[in-house]
Design a protein around this nucleic acid. Structure first.
Length: 816
RNA sequence: GCGAAAGUGGCGGAAUUGGUAGACGCGCUGGGUUUAGGUCCCAGUGGGGUAAUCCCCCGUGCGAGUUCGAGUCUCGCCUUUCGCACCA
């Protein structure tokens, strides 16, 4: 073998072997236990960044480990190819988005191959392939027929100078990123999917998803935000149409002192018509972004409309305010305000000197509504006939009262809103709808799908080129044949990422969206990706899976059985970014140290769910370890083939060495298979190699033990550093490839110990250690502990009250 | 603002079910190998006390609490990170 560890040589060899033997091609074998391991596919932005490397290394380790467990593994890779950056690059470099995207894919595919990930490349696709988005368009037309897709107006960020719609990301401090002009809200017609129809199922299923982190399930529950409450109609004085509001706290009804209205509410427009000051305020409210985070953090402002609503119980006239924090998109665009019992209403009432009326006395110490809102439930006060009732009883009585009077109804409300899928952009999948002057919205018939996005375009400021391409949008109505126009909006890119996992199972299917292979492979056993996708992407994909299920395309209810959310990669404590200048280019590291070193450090530096702090010297440490491993195996192999192992014929040192080997194997298997704490598995193997290095004994027994130790070391490390272990496996004298080897079995007999060390505490403080027989009973342990010299020193003059023995761990002597 | 997490040596982290705090790695210090530097090898390394490798005290963001025993559980606070529906 080569004297020196040369990663570039070793890695090229191993990769050629896998390619020649098609080691990672996934074949549907009926009856085999399948394991579908999937990492969130990348946006082809140009080159891999460290976040990708971390994500895909975790996935590859899981996939290779499961393969060693005998499972039929599918690990595919593809490209989330539509999106905004391609349009920006196109403007900057005068390159069509399609060309830019495909060149990036070429480059990044090469980088993934260089890292040695075990993908089945035969299933690769990009979401900008018409053969992919064809089926997304097809499903959308099905959903339209079912009434699950519909059109309504919704607000977008409008740049009045560039005459274009801006993403929230493109709005900086309320101004367009290119023009610098203050953005406006603009309401335009857009397509929506009825995710709220599935809200209850999406919510309830979370309880039966033990393979998902609690954190993510909680976030999704809160996002869906199911609440039960009352929808009430408030009469508007002098108007026929009442004002509808939803409240989860009808028990606070007597505390309502004003009403809040979204600036876009029709009633606000009406009131503004004869009131220039109010009109100016409504107009001002229009000059904010649609981002909810911005809305929630801005100053709460409002203005009296002059309109009055009638309190449904007291008949009192309540002022109606336009308030900049009431969202038209959420609920009915109007709220009843109870300043005594809602903090936001309280702050608003303070600012505008509106009355604060306490109507709930909470349990325990009574809150002071002069200091802030009292949000706890309790007993009603100052509430007419309802005074003295509990919040819960009042809810029931009031609901019954209003339902009987026809002025209200119990309703379940969701914070979740329907999914707006229209984007006024070019680089996305065309929405397959045609607008006919006579027939209205007509879906593109199956035989005309896909609606192919023209790729030869130049991108300029001022919106999507599709809107300037009559050859694209001019068409005939499929229903009546009249001249009609295609939809020029494209789909939200979350549409593509919501079903790609299923398409990987049957990527070559050209007659259907999915075929029977989808049920063979899905649901995905292990899905791995960034925590930043905890809500949107993962919720949309769950929704989409149910849509496909209800279309008869899959049988399961959920797409991802187990979810691993990886943390971010940081440098100097901050997220890597070009603007901070703290990026690390994985390519440079691979060139210098090889893929195995990069993979090893990435897995060693932190457990997957935590953020990972990048360290250049840590990478050198990983490289050093691999060199030491190389030298260790080389030195052993130089002595010639090892004799067969006879566990019965070993001396104490050899037996101890062997015990360490099997203890390490047991721990590493648990860490990699169950806990996903690859860092501790690697630490355990490092400890083992340190011990093997110190184990200098020779003779047949010692050499056999060393051979076994090195073989097990390589097998444990194989999923993490597959190239060097591929080579060293041959060096140890094996004809077969390590990639086809099963995970080794722990020899329970090797683990037995005659004595164990126990920690002895006095009053919870560590005072001594004792060695006892492994099978010693509690009485023996107790007297051994009490007899210990240092224990006696600390119990002298005290009475031993209790002795706690935790088998195999410690003894605690409680003395007073 | 709302929702969800995280805070442990000089640094990354370990401590899996409430049971030895600091495994493993980096860095640093000392020694060896080398013409030199680097590489490599050996030893030490939370803070303090001590002649001492014995032993003792302190120590897991801050403040309380539960327990024989708390990094771990409970309550309050501080800081940082992620998400907030058109970045992906």
């Amino acid at each position: 073998m080569e004297e020196q560890y040369q990663p570039e040589v070793v890695e090229a060899e191993a990769q050629q072997y896998w390619e020649r033997h098609e080691s990672f091609r996934a074949v549907e074998r009926p009856g085999a236990e399948t394991y579908y391991c999937l990492c969130m596919f990348p946006y082809p932005s140009g080159k891999l960044h460290m976040g990708h490397v971390r994500n895909y290394t975790i996935g590859d380790v899981v996939a290779r480990y499961q393969r060693m467990q005998g499972r039929n593994v599918l690990q595919p890779m593809g490209w989330d190819a539509f999106g905004l950056p391609a349009e920006n690059a196109a403007m900057q470099n005068r390159v069509p988005p399609a060309q830019w995207t495909r060149e990036n894919i070429e480059h990044m595919r090469g980088q993934l191959r260089r890292l040695g990930f075990g993908y089945d490349w035969s299933r690769e696709f990009a979401t900008c392939d018409p053969s992919y988005y064809h089926w997304e368009q097809w499903l959308f037309t099905r959903l339209y027929e079912k009434g699950l897709a519909y059109k309504k107006t919704a607000t977008v960020n409008w740049d009045p100078v560039d005459q274009t719609v801006l993403a929230n990301e493109q709005v900086i401090d309320g101004r367009g990123w290119r023009s610098g002009a203050p953005v406006e809200r603009r309401a335009i017609p857009q397509w929506f999917l009825r995710i709220t129809d599935y809200a209850d199922e999406l919510l309830d299923a979370l309880d039966a998803m033990p393979g998902w982190p609690d954190q993510v399930r909680t976030m999704q529950r809160n996002w869906i935000g199911r609440s039960e409450g009352l929808e009430l109609a408030f009469e508007v004085i002098g108007h026929d149409e009442p004002l509808h509001v939803f409240t989860t706290r009808p028990d606070t009804l007597y505390g309502v002192t004003y009403m809040g209205l979204a600036a876009e509410h029709p009633l606000a427009a009406e009131a503004a018509a004869g009131n220039p000051e109010l009109a100016a305020f409504v107009e001002e409210c229009r000059h904010t972004t649609v981002s909810e985070a911005d809305v929630a953090t801005m100053d709460k402002r409002g203005m009296d409309t002059g309109l009055r609503a009638r309190h449904p119980l007291t008949g009192e006239a309540l002022p109606i305010y336009v308030a900049n924090f009431v969202l038209m998109e959420y609920g009915s665009g109007a709220v009843m305000a109870v300043p005594a019992h809602d903090q936001r209403d309280w702050e608003f009432a303070r600012a505008y000197e509106l009355p604060i009326r306490q109507v709930i006395e909470p349990e325990g110490e009574g809150g002071d509504v002069g200091e802030g809102a009292v949000t706890a439930r309790g007993t009603l006060v100052n509430s007419g006939d309802y005074t003295g009732l509990s919040s819960d009883d009042a809810f029931e009585r009031l609901a019954a009262h209003f339902e009987a009077g026809g002025r209200g109804r119990r309703r379940v409300n969701y914070r979740l809103r329907d999914w707006g899928v229209s984007r006024q952009r070019y680089w996305g999948a065309p929405i397959p709808m045609i607008n006919c002057p006579d027939c209205g919205d007509v879906p593109v018939p199956d035989e005309d799908l896909p609606v192919v996005l023209p790729e030869e375009v130049t991108i300029e400021a001022g919106g999507s080129p599709l809107k300037r391409m009559p050859e694209f949008y001019r068409t005939a109505c499929p229903r009546c044949g009249a001249e009609a126009e295609r939809e020029t909006d494209t789909f939200d890119t979350f549409m593509e990422s919501s079903w790609y996992y299923a398409r990987f199972a049957c990527a070559d299917s050209d007659t259907a969206m999915l075929d029977e292979r989808a049920d063979y492979w899905t649901p995905v056993n292990q899905y791995i990706g960034g925590i930043e996708h905890a809500i949107l992407h993962l919720l949309y994909a769950r929704f989409y899976h149910k849509l496909m299920r209800d279309e008869g395309l899959v049988n399961s209810d959920e797409p991802f059985t187990n979810l691993l959310t990886q943390g971010m990669v940081l440098k100097d404590g901050a997220k890597m970014s070009k603007s901070k200048g703290n990026t690390v280019d994985p390519q440079a590291l691979v060139d210098r140290f090889g893929a195995d070193t990069v993979r090893l450090f990435t897995m060693f530096a932190a457990p997957p769910e935590q953020s990972l702090e990048w360290s250049d010297s840590g990478v050198e440490g990983a490289s050093r370890f691999l060199r030491r491993l190389w030298n260790l195996v080389a030195a052993h192999a130089a002595e010639g083939p090892a004799p067969a192992l006879d566990p019965q014929a070993l001396d104490d040192d050899e037996r101890a060495m062997r015990r360490k080997v099997h203890e390490t194997l047991r721990k590493a298997g648990d860490d990699m298979g169950r806990r996903f704490t690859f860092n501790t598995a690697i630490a355990a193997v490092m400890e083992l190699t340190n011990d093997v290095g110190r184990f200098q004994a020779d003779g047949d027994g010692a050499r056999a033990v060393r051979q076994e130790a090195l073989e097990i070391t390589l097998l444990i490390l194989a999923p993490i550093v597959p190239h060097i272990t591929h080579r060293l496996w041959q060096v140890l004298g094996h004809e077969d490839a390590i990639v086809d080897r099963p995970w080794p079995a722990v020899d329970e007999a090797a683990l037995t110990r005659e004595t164990v060390e126990l920690v002895v505490q006095v009053n919870g403080k560590l005072r001594s250690r004792i060695d006892v027989a492994a099978d010693a009973d509690n009485d023996t342990i107790e007297s051994a502990a009490l007899a210990d010299e240092n224990v006696q020193r600390f119990t002298e003059g005290k009475t031993v009250r209790k002795v706690i023995v935790v088998p195999g761990r410690l003894v605690n002597v409680v003395a007073k």
